[in-house]
Design a binder for these strands. Structure first.
Lengths: 209, 209
DNA sequence: TGACAATGTTACCGATCGGTACGTATGGTC
DNA sequence: GACCATACGTACCGATCGGTAACATTGTCA
């Protein structure tokens, strides 16, 4: 064998389908359970049972449950950005289309049964203390999202980009939280509201209508 | 001593036996702890310790911690409506002023340090299962708030009252949740965004400008 | 084959969880 | 003073929590 990395190589065909590493299985299991039930509601036993591994494996890969929660949110953040930057898998042609396409997709998900909102926002609700490792990930993410929305508002030509960016963020977070309160909630109006807000905030002469 | 009721009676000396004082102390203690730390994060021991009572007193007044949580949210709902209907203690002259006054007050609270959002929304995040007694209170409340906002949107003369009501609800919930993520967050733009949204959604001829 | 790293197995820890059996103090009534 | 209901406390329960120690097993590579 010429390869230097001894294991978990997915490209080499001669490997007999290396079973997923315990750490990855735990990450996936935690991801699903934490998101669906909430972090505090899920015990480490449930996580390892679902993952088909044992508790020592968890604590060999993660120093504590809190750190596992932080890793879960780190993964969540990583998976979020493609959803946001390429809603529907396509790169939107302009900022306005971009934001509205994301909100359209988001609203569609949010009105379905069993929707559980944003894992990062939910974690911030579960852990009010500003020192918890999971919360730190959430706060960093939200700061980045806010910044990105302000950028997009600037691209749209908003008179007050900060105001429009923040307004869109409020709407989006509103969808996250109301979507999990009840199906067919206010989220169904998110697209229309965002459209109205944007059109009210960008200089009129440049906008059609 | 001539007084017949020896304790906890401030006004009438011989009034019919006041309800147990322990239950009220527990309600107040739970109210504060549940709101600040979250429901799952607070144990019953902490509640009774803070209340200066003992655990059996809690379970004599409430069947379970879940029911105490529901009672907490019931109180929260009761305290909410005056804040909403009379923002700043005044009855607003019209629907537009009404909603904007509430959002102004809300946003002021939300940008301060230690803000913890809406106890009812937070509870819905903590308890995803639609059977938990606390969640039922939260869902009922949110349904009522949505209905009320739609009424106000109708009063404003919105072209699509459901859309405007929902849009305002999304903004408000957005303030709740982002306010507890970080101070000086998007909540500071809530009033401007709500104003823009309203003015974009009501028939132009009737609105000043 | 032998070394090594990763994982599984089993059993356990102290702390805390929500919840309860049971005794005690107090005050009003006759 | 006998009696009773109300209100509260002491002490405890079994279950579960997050986390760990010690050792066996496996698969991979040199």
């Amino acid at each position: 064998m010429s390869r230097t990395t001894p294991n978990r190589n997915t490209s080499k065909p001669d490997a007999p389908a290396q079973p997923p590493r315990a750490a990855e299985r735990i990450r996936a299991s935690a991801r699903e359970l934490f998101y669906r039930e909430g972090i505090r509601a899920v015990g480490v036993d449930e996580i390892v049972n679902r993952a088909g591994v044992t508790k020592p494996s968890l604590y060999r890969a993660f120093p504590s449950k809190d750190d596992l929660a932080a890793a879960y949110l780190f993964d969540y953040d990583r998976e979020f950005w493609p959803r946001f930057e390429k809603p529907g898998g396509k790169s939107p042609p302009d900022a306005r289309t971009h934001v509205l396409a994301y909100i359209r997709e988001l609203a569609n998900r949010a009105v379905k049964d069993g929707y559980r909102g944003c894992g990062l926002s939910n974690a911030a609700v579960e852990y009010p203390g500003h020192t918890h490792p999971a919360r730190l990930v959430a706060e960093t993410h939200k700061k980045a999202l806010r910044q990105r929305l302000r950028e997009l508002a600037t691209e749209m030509g908003a008179r007050d980009p900060r105001m429009l960016g923040d307004g869109l963020m409020l709407l989006i977070e509103g969808v996250y939280v109301t979507g999990q309160q009840s199906a067919s909630g206010p989220a169904q109006s998110a697209l229309a509201a965002a459209t109205a807000l944007i059109d009210a905030c960008v200089a009129k002469p440049t906008r059609k209508r």
